[in-house]
Simulated assay, not measured.
Amino acid sequence: MSTVFLTGASGFLGGHLLRELLAAGHQVKALSRRPETDAGITAQGGIAVRAALDDTASLAQALAGCEAVFHAAADTSMWRPQAAAQTATNVGGTENLLRAAEAAGVKAFMHTSSVSAYSHLVNTTMREDVPQRGGESWVNYERSKYLSEAAVRNSSLPWIVFNPSHILGPGDQHNWARLIMLVDQQKLPGIPPGSGAFADVREIASAQVRAWQRQRFGQCYLLGGEHASFVALVHLIGVALQRRTPKGAMPPWLLKSYARIVDTWSRLSGKEPDITPESAALTCHHLLVDSSKAKAELDYRETPLDALLADKLAWMRQQSMLKAPA
Rank of each mutant, 00 (worst) to 15 (best):
D200Q: 14
I204P: 00
W176H: 10
D200P: 08
H174D: 11
W176A: 12
Q185R: 12
D200E: 03
I191Q: 08
D172Y: 02
G194V: 04
Q185P: 03
I204N: 01
S195E: 13
G171Q: 06
V183A: 10
G194W: 11
R202I: 09
I204M: 03
P189N: 02
A199V: 03
D200R: 08
M181E: 15
P193Y: 12
D200S: 08
Q185E: 15
A177K: 11
R202T: 04
D172A: 03
N175V: 05
I191T: 08
S195A: 15
V183K: 06
G194Q: 06
G194D: 05
G190V: 03
D172M: 09
A199G: 01
L188C: 08
G171L: 13
F198T: 04
M181N: 13
Q173P: 01
Q173W: 02
P192E: 00
A177Y: 02
Q173V: 11
D200A: 10
I180D: 01
Q185V: 03
F198S: 09
Q173G: 04
R202P: 09
A177I: 02
D200F: 03
V183G: 07
G190Y: 04
P192M: 10
V201Y: 01
D184S: 07
F198V: 07
P189E: 13
D184N: 15
K187T: 12
M181Y: 07
L179Q: 06
A197C: 14
R178D: 05
D172W: 05
H174T: 09
Q185H: 11
F198W: 14
R178Q: 11
D172F: 04
I204F: 05
D172I: 07
R202W: 09
V183I: 09
P193T: 12
L188F: 01
D184K: 14
Q173L: 13
R178H: 12
Q173S: 07
S195G: 14
Q173K: 15
Q186G: 11
A199W: 03
L182W: 11
P192Y: 08
G190M: 12
F198Y: 15
G190H: 05
G171T: 14
I180V: 09
Q186C: 12
P192F: 06
G194F: 11
Q173E: 06
P189Y: 09
A199N: 01
